[in-house]
């Protein structure tokens, strides 16, 4: 009888472990090169590759989930997925609601892009994505902020003249500027914002956070993270 009880307890325990082993990774899928949908319809990008490697190192089975940016934190908190890996900068406000791992992307430079070199980025109308650190920065600057739900719409606002400039991560804007053939140009200075990009987790998931922290540390130590950064963001990017 005793062995039976012990056996059941052991089974229940291992079953409990098996439950926890699939980790659902939430991302936006609209912010290249961090994360985007490729031609095959799969999630791709720097964070896809990084996340898969982290899961391998932490010995977790991971599954990718798409979610809109503006509801990405509420859906993490209500348990629809277990992590946010979506180019989310670590800030004090967000840290009150969710937890972050250590950063896997150094503090980023944000930049202004306008339709011409004399675009009024200081006092004009500036577009930014809702609930981003960039939107917070513009709200406190002298410019008028217009917010959009997706990064795509912020750039479209500059193209069609609705906004004088768009303010976003430099890494997101760079490929767009390059492909625009002169229709979009960087204006103004780069602005360092945020405390680096980290993975978001529920406050109560400390165990999972430790696992990912350890995996990120090991990727930083053996240089694989730097190799990934250079692969997706080019030679000039900041590394660890």
């Amino acid at each position: 009888m005793k062995t039976l009880i012990l056996g059941t307890a052991a089974l229940a325990l291992t079953a409990g472990l098996a439950w926890a082993d699939t980790v659902r990774m939430g991302t936006e899928g609209a912010y290249p090169p961090y994360n985007f949908i490729n031609d095959k319809g799969e999630i791709d990008g720097f964070e896809r590759e990084l996340g898969d490697e982290l899961c391998k190192r932490a010995e977790l089975t991971c599954e990718w989930v798409k979610n809109d940016w503006d509801s990405i934190i509420p859906n993490l908190v209500s348990g629809n997925y277990d992590t946010i890996i979506a180019g989310m900068s670590i800030t004090a406000e967000r840290d009150e609601v969710i937890d972050f791992t250590q950063d896997y992307f150094p503090p980023t430079a944000s930049a202004y892009v306008g339709a011409s070199a004399d675009a009024n980025w200081e006092g004009g109308v500036v577009a930014a994505q809702t609930a981003t650190i960039q939107a917070g920065h513009i709200a406190e600057s002298g410019a008028t902020l217009v917010e959009f739900a997706t990064p795509e719409e912020t750039v479209a606002a500059v193209r069609n003249g609705e906004a004088d400039a768009v303010f976003a991560d430099r890494d997101y804007l760079a490929p767009l500027v390059e492909a625009s053939g002169g229709a979009l140009v960087f204006v103004g200075p780069d602005v360092p914002l945020g405390g680096g990009v980290g993975m978001g987790l529920r406050e109560s998931d400390t165990e999972l956070k430790e696992k990912f922290d350890a995996a990120i540390t090991s990727m930083k130590a053996d240089g694989t993270l730097n190799a990934l950064l250079i692969k997706w963001f080019g030679e000039g990017t900041q590394t660890y």
Binding site: A30, P32, N38, D39, E152, V155, A156, P175, E178, A179
Partner: peptide, 19 residues
């Protein structure tokens, strides 16, 4: 429609196009 219609740059797709 929103996802596919968005601007695609040549770095991330074989079919780049505007908005």
């Amino acid at each position: 429609a929103r996802e596919l219609g968005g601007t695609k740059t040549p770095n991330f797709t074989a079919y780049p196009h505007g908005d």
